[in-house]
């Protein structure tokens, strides 16, 4: 079952592009990463799925229900916005309880467990919390009712590395219990380490989607040549990095052509490997002049 599905989903703010013909599929039980730099359209896509923005055109469904019925599926969604606006005059436990009451459920024991895992002091007032602790409050509010789907917009920003680890542990636990996780990030390593699948968004559209292995093993290869400082003239390489006695570049094309070109150069050593997700990401972003 597709938990999230969008078909040509488009959102323009007047003449400003938010997302354009976004086609995305997230299957049940997946841990899905949504990667893109600032302004690529990640938050717009997420806010549209949450029913917080009306799309300009296109279709989308969440948990099998169309966007028009978002009030129904929101019961089963745990949402963490990138910048949550909380009530500064409330205490942490009051806010968590308020969030639960608005969902009409009693999840105090789960809230206590999550607060304990995330080392969150519930007696403090919201306005006295640091950015990281505010983020933890948002995480507890989004997870305490044990939803079927987690939609999280840059959830780890502000969290220290230990808490990031704990947060992903909690999410993986939920995923193993059958929940689906969809989160946006521009930290590629966390997507690579935690996700089963990912999509790369560029200027409002998906430019690559697949499993992490598929994305990493895309036809692009990282080529490192020792003994030369420049890439061969007939080779179209990207992300070129020149060293004292070496050159490294991403190559996407006929491997025979590459080998033929290399044979005519004074190459001492060659290393061809699958690039890191980060390199793939950069590869897509450097296309079309970026």
């Amino acid at each position: 079952m597709n938990v999230i599905e969008t078909k040509n989903l488009t959102k323009f703010y007047g003449k400003t592009r938010g997302i354009k013909n976004l086609n995305l599929t997230v299957k049940e039980g997946e841990f899905f990463g949504f990667i893109g730099p600032n302004g690529a359209g990640k938050s717009t896509a997420i806010r549209t799925l949450m029913g917080l923005i009306a799309p300009t055109s296109g279709e989308a469904s969440v948990l099998g229900l169309p966007l028009g019925q978002c009030r129904e599926y929101l019961r089963d969604v745990g949402y963490l916005p990138s910048e949550a606006a909380f009530y500064n005059d409330m205490k942490v436990r009051e806010l968590i309880s308020y969030s639960a009451k608005l969902r009409g459920v009693d999840c105090s024991s789960e809230a206590d467990r999550l607060c304990s895992c995330l080392e969150l002091d519930t007696s403090k007032r919201i306005d006295s919390l640091s950015l990281g602790n505010r983020k933890k409050v948002g995480i507890v509010c989004a997870m305490q009712h044990r939803p079927k789907l987690y939609i999280m917009d840059e959830p780890t920003s502000g969290l220290d590395p230990l808490m990031q680890k704990e947060f992903f542990r909690l999410l993986r636990q939920r995923q193993q219990e059958g929940a689906t996780v969809f989160f946006s990030s521009h930290v590629l390593s966390e997507v690579q380490h935690n996700c089963t699948r990912a999509a790369i968004i560029r200027e409002g559209s998906i430019v690559a989607e697949g499993s992490i292995d598929e994305l990493s093993g895309t036809s692009a290869k990282r080529v490192v040549l020792h003994g030369v400082k420049e890439i061969p003239a007939g080779i179209d390489g990207r992300s070129v990095v020149s060293g004292d006695d070496s050159v490294s570049f991403l190559y996407q094309g006929d491997i025979k052509l590459l080998l033929r070109e290399l044979s005519s150069l004074p190459v001492k050593d060659v290393n061809i490997s699958d690039p890191e997700l980060e390199e793939i990401f950069m590869h897509y972003y450097q296309q079309e002049g970026r």
Binding site: M50, G51, L52, R71, E72, L74, R75, Y79, P81, A84, A85, F86, Y87, S99, L102, R103, G104
Partner: peptide, 14 residues
């Protein structure tokens, strides 16, 4: 109101 989005992202009927 600043909390409109916070509340409308929950299953709170508008």
């Amino acid at each position: 109101a600043k909390d409109n989005e916070l509340l409308l992202a929950m299953p709170v009927p508008p």
